[in-house]
Design a protein around this nucleic acid. Structure first.
Lengths: 113, 113
DNA sequence: CGGTATCCTATCGGATACTG
DNA sequence: CAGTATCCGATAGGATACCG
């Protein structure tokens, strides 16, 4: 995933779509919205993706500017991931997404009855 | 894209992510939120995807239950796409997404200066 | 008009193994 | 601890051509 600089002029939806295209973007943004986390802690929250996949997804979100990576120069290494300003603003979308997602699941369940 | 029936028990975010994974889902949902449209009209709004791709994306959204397809038995054929109840509810997410998307574009532009 | 049916390719996510 | 390097398979999406 590589950041495209020519997002300007594009519509907000297309832009959002690109940023959210990563399979784990939403989940990562959700967890970092709860609190800043170290790599390992984040990985424990998301047991279904491997270390290398998590790294790639984090790099993508970092390139897009949604999250920030802070490296503490020490041994053993400590790296913290947190939301950027624009990442924090995304929490509003997540909130609506959560409401809708629960609603959607309920709808599916009714159909099954 | 095939609908998975075992979404139950999953978190709302994972569910939402699956539904939104289609490259054009958001754009389609946005346009159908404005008004019910025929296939051709929708295609004119989205010049960047081919007919076959549009068909696939529409089928996926239909399978997920977000949109409804109404076929009017006449010649030439007339098919209308509209939002389902849960699709209408998704407009709230889209609204937040639009706000955020515009914000994000502004942020990027500032960085470029 | 509103599709199918094929085929093809790029990319993305995952598995695995190794490292400062 | 937090990565990187490499490889690999699945699949989503696009191009093209044809159809009721």
């Amino acid at each position: 995933m590589e950041l495209e600089k020519d997002l300007f002029g594009k519509c907000p939806y297309t832009t959002a779509q690109k940023v959210l295209s990563g399979k784990w973007s939403i989940m990562i943004l959700y967890h970092l919205g709860i609190k800043t986390m170290r790599f390992g802690e984040l990985q424990r929250q998301l047991p279904d993706l491997t270390q290398s996949t998590l790294t790639k997804q984090l790099r993508a979100l970092e390139d897009y500017g949604l999250i920030e990576r802070t490296i503490y120069p020490q041994v053993p290494p400590k790296v913290e991931y947190s939301l950027s300003d624009i990442g924090i603003k995304f929490q509003k979308v997540l909130a609506e997404l959560a409401i809708w997602g629960n609603d959607y699941i309920k709808t599916l369940q009714k159909k099954e009855l």
